[in-house]
Amino acid sequence: MGTQQKAPVGRPRGFDAEEALERAMRLFWERGYEGAGLTDLTKAMGITRTSMYAAFGNKEALFRKALERYTEGPASYVARALGEPTARQAATAFLDGCVRVTTRPDCPAGCLGVQGSLAAGDAGRNAREALTAWRNDGVDQLRDRFRRAVDEGDLPPDTDPGLVARYLMTVSNGIAVQAASGATREDLQQVADMALRNWPPA
């Protein structure tokens, strides 16, 4: 009778990967891609570089995972806004969600999608490109929602869905920059409200 071989058991990581990723996301959110050095990241995550590489890959791969976590967590207001029954409600929920997330007292001010891209050197090029694609995807999702609103008669037939989407994203990005500069939630909510005062677009 032959001996039964056991499958090799991997050594446990010894840390909570989800918690480590949450901490990395917050550091990228606060400092941007280039501003978050490997030493700062591993210290914030409570792990060694070797553990970080084994669990998440290099810094760029970690950043992409952090951006996914941000999209599914703090930025999940975008998906919820797109599900609102009217275009105006979708636009309102989108900007209101932006104001809330960028001014949360328990999180870094601003938006990871904006802060993360304020990097200047070649080392941050891939991260900037990932964030550009992320923001463009947001514009595309808004455009598709407003195109549907035109088809359903919820927006005037001569409305340019792409322009409306770009307008909202531009206001949203401006809100994020202002939040990072210390603007209050109340002030930014007034900006969001003003941006929608003449809805629907003429």
Rank of each mutant, 00 (worst) to 15 (best):
G37H: 12
R128W: 08
E152N: 10
G121F: 00
D40M: 15
T86I: 06
L163F: 13
P74T: 07
E186H: 15
G10A: 12
T102W: 00
A36N: 05
G46A: 15
V139W: 00
Q89P: 00
R148D: 07
A183W: 01
R11E: 15
L82H: 02
D187G: 11
D151S: 09
R69D: 04
K59P: 06
F15S: 04
R143P: 01
T159C: 01
A119G: 03
T3I: 13
R143K: 14
A165M: 03
N198K: 12
F146L: 08
Q5L: 13
L168W: 12
G113C: 03
V164D: 08
P161I: 04
P8N: 10
A179L: 02
R49V: 15
L112I: 03
P108V: 01
P8I: 14
A202S: 14
L168E: 09
N198L: 15
G73Q: 02
P161W: 06
R125T: 09
Y167P: 09
Q178F: 10
N173V: 11
A61P: 11
L168S: 13
E186L: 15
V99G: 06
Q178G: 12
A183Y: 04
F146E: 07
D193A: 09
E18G: 13
V150E: 08
M45N: 03
T103P: 07
S51Y: 08
D96G: 02
Q4I: 14
T184H: 11
T102D: 01
T3D: 08
K6P: 07
F15H: 08
R143N: 09
A165E: 00
R31Y: 02
W29I: 02
L188N: 00
P105N: 01
A109F: 03
P157V: 00
K43R: 15
A165I: 14
R80T: 08
F28Y: 11
A195Q: 11
Y70L: 11
R166Q: 12
T170L: 13
K43F: 13
Q190F: 10
L95H: 05
A75G: 12
L163K: 14
G162P: 04
Q141Y: 12
L38T: 12
T86L: 07
E152F: 02
A120L: 10
T102A: 08
W199C: 05
T48L: 14
L82W: 03
Q5M: 10
G162N: 03
S181T: 12
G110E: 02
R125Y: 07
R197P: 05
A61R: 13
V139I: 15
L168Q: 11
L142C: 00
R135A: 10
R64T: 09
F63R: 08
R104W: 11
F15W: 10
R197N: 08
A123R: 15
E72I: 02
L27C: 13
G46N: 00
T39Q: 15
R11Q: 15
D144M: 05
L112V: 01
L142K: 01
G37C: 09
N58F: 09
E30P: 06
R69V: 01
P200W: 02
A91W: 04
P200A: 10
G73K: 06
M25N: 03
F146I: 07
A90S: 03
G116M: 04
D96S: 05
R31W: 02
A36H: 05
G153M: 00
K6Q: 13
A79I: 04
L155G: 09
Y33M: 01
M1N: 08
A133M: 10
